[in-house]
Amino acid sequence: MSFLALVTLVVRDYDEAVAFYTDALGFDLVEDTDRGDGSRWVVVRPPGGPAGSALVLARAKNPAEEEAVGAQTGGRVGFFLHTDDFTRDHTRMTTAGVRFLEEPRHEPYGTVAVFEDLYGNRWDLLEPAPDA
């Protein structure tokens, strides 16, 4: 069986990105390995998430990559963080300083609100509807 294992997210700085994803979003730091050339292999994922649902945080290493930081999906929501308790996670994330771009809304597919990561990439926080 095939599956999508990792997705790379280009970041400005490893440590600030790790701090945001672990502290503000509550992700687990799966791996942080020095590669010996000034780069690191950094993997984070939501707690309890399957092994195949993780982000590689890759520090931008040239001007083209630096320009892509925060705009990797052209301003569209590019990442979807599912939760089993929207209110709990929305409250925790808001308290941690995560910037939501809208009030939570109820859609046929679930409760959702768009937020930005520390670089401006847009995410949905989504609690799917029970029958979705």
Score class of each variant (00 low, 15 high):
His90Arg: 02
Val98Pro: 03
Ala60Pro: 01
Ala96Asn: 09
Pro46Trp: 06
Val112Asn: 11
Asn62Arg: 02
Leu57Trp: 09
Ala113Arg: 13
Arg88Thr: 08
Ala58Arg: 15
Glu116Gly: 15
Glu102Phe: 00
Gly97Pro: 12
Ala71Gln: 14
Pro63Thr: 04
Pro50Ile: 11
Arg40Thr: 12
Val43Trp: 06
Asn62Ile: 01
Thr87Leu: 10
Thr94Met: 06
Gly49Pro: 00
Pro104Gly: 01
Gly74Arg: 02
Gly74Ile: 04
Gly74His: 05
Glu66Ala: 09
Pro63Glu: 05
Val112Gly: 07
Thr91Ser: 11
Ala71Tyr: 15
Pro108Thr: 08
Pro104Tyr: 00
Glu66Cys: 10
Thr111Cys: 10
Tyr109Thr: 05
Lys61Met: 03
Gly48Ile: 12
Pro50Arg: 07
Arg76Gly: 03
Ala64Ser: 00
Gly75Lys: 07
Ala54Cys: 12
Thr83Pro: 10
Val56Trp: 12
Val77His: 07
Pro104Thr: 01
Thr94Asn: 06
Ala60Ser: 00
Thr73Phe: 14
Ala64Trp: 00
Val43His: 11
Glu65His: 06
His82Glu: 14
Pro47Gly: 09
Ala113Leu: 11
Glu102Asp: 01
Val77Gln: 05
Ser39Gly: 12
Val44Ile: 13
Ala58Tyr: 14
His106Gln: 13
Thr94Ile: 08
Phe115Ser: 02
His90Phe: 07
Thr91Asn: 09
Phe80Thr: 13
Asp84Val: 12
Ser53Ala: 14
Gly110Tyr: 02
Pro47Phe: 12
Ser53Phe: 07
Ala51Leu: 14
Thr73Glu: 10
Leu81Thr: 02
Asp89Asn: 08
Thr94Cys: 04
Leu101Gly: 12
Glu102Val: 00
Thr94Glu: 04
